[in-house]
Amino acid sequence: MKKHYYVFACALLVIGLLSCSGNESKDKEEKAVQEEKPMEMVDAVSIWDGISVRKEPSSDGKWVSSISLGEKIQLTGNSAVDSSEKNREYVEIKLGDDKQGWVVSDFVEEGSAVTAIKDVQIYKRPDLLTKTDNSFKPMDVMALIDTRDEWVEVKGKSQGETWFWTGWVKRTDLSDNEVDIAVAVYAQKALEIEDEEKRADAIQEIIENESFISSQFMMDLKNELNDLNNDEEELIDESTEEMDSVETDSEEEETKEAISK
């Protein structure tokens, strides 16, 4: 009887060990599945032009690419701090061509890109009684962070300013059309060119680009180009008049000399 009891106890022990082993194996499989689950990407946008993307979260990291103002990106959810750069924070991003890298967190913002279609008054909160002294200019590009009824919260750098403004603006003063955003970015660069001839050439290039025809900024750019061309014609006319005047004065002098002789 004792022998049978001993065999029965051993059998129960073996079954228990096999059960524990099976549970451990199942737990490991479930953990592996969880680790292989892809991270959730978050849509974001660049709010600065020409930001470097690095292989590592450091300014010394290998250069991967650069991103343009208003360019769509995705945040992977990973972040890091570089203690050698006064604890500057970096975030990992994924580009449209699936390349991944790290950028300084200050220059990207979760949300989507928008551009101002006219002067846009900035408010502290979504309330007309909270008006600030700041406003975005036409063709400023910014990130749309939040929406509340006819109001939207945005963050961006206005032309001529050195850092970002964050505040609430009216939704109707903005465009989220990708063609308008692209034209706004290129137009800003063109309008900053000091040499009027080169500026006119840059504007002309935007106007002639068939991909940009539908932009509501086209008329503004055409007017700017006409003004530049008119200024150039006026300069040519003034120069011609001066030359004619010099030639006339010279002829009069020659006539006087001939008469005196």
Rank of each mutant, 00 (worst) to 15 (best):
E29T: 00
S19E: 15
L129R: 06
D106G: 06
Q204R: 13
K55F: 03
D220Q: 12
K131A: 03
I207C: 00
E251A: 14
L225Y: 01
M41E: 12
D173G: 02
K198L: 11
K62P: 01
N177T: 00
V120K: 00
K261V: 08
S250K: 13
S105V: 08
V104R: 10
S65N: 13
A184C: 09
S58I: 01
S84K: 03
E257V: 15
Y90P: 04
L17D: 14
E242N: 07
I213H: 11
G111T: 04
E210M: 05
E238T: 14
E194A: 06
D176Y: 09
E197Y: 04
K198G: 06
T115G: 08
M243N: 14
V246M: 10
M218V: 06
K99G: 05
F212W: 06
D180Q: 02
N209M: 06
E224P: 01
D106V: 01
A202V: 02
L221M: 13
R199M: 05
L12G: 13
M39P: 00
Q159R: 03
E110C: 04
K72R: 15
E247T: 12
I117T: 03
K86Y: 01
K37V: 12
V103I: 10
E242I: 01
L69M: 09
T130A: 07
E233M: 10
L128A: 04
K189F: 05
K3D: 12
S112V: 14
E234P: 08
D97F: 07
E210I: 08
E234A: 14
I213A: 15
M39G: 14
M1V: 13
V53G: 11
S52N: 11
S66M: 09
Y5M: 12
I206V: 03
T76V: 05
S79Y: 14
K86G: 00
V33H: 11
T172G: 09
K256H: 12
Q74D: 09
Q216S: 03
K170T: 06
L95C: 08
K99L: 06
N134Y: 14
G16M: 05
R88G: 04
K124S: 04
K124Y: 09
A116E: 04
E205M: 02
P38N: 12
V154Q: 01
S65P: 03
K86E: 07
A44R: 01
P38G: 11
Q34D: 14
L95W: 05
K62L: 03
E254P: 06
E251I: 14
V14Y: 01
P138L: 09
Q159N: 07
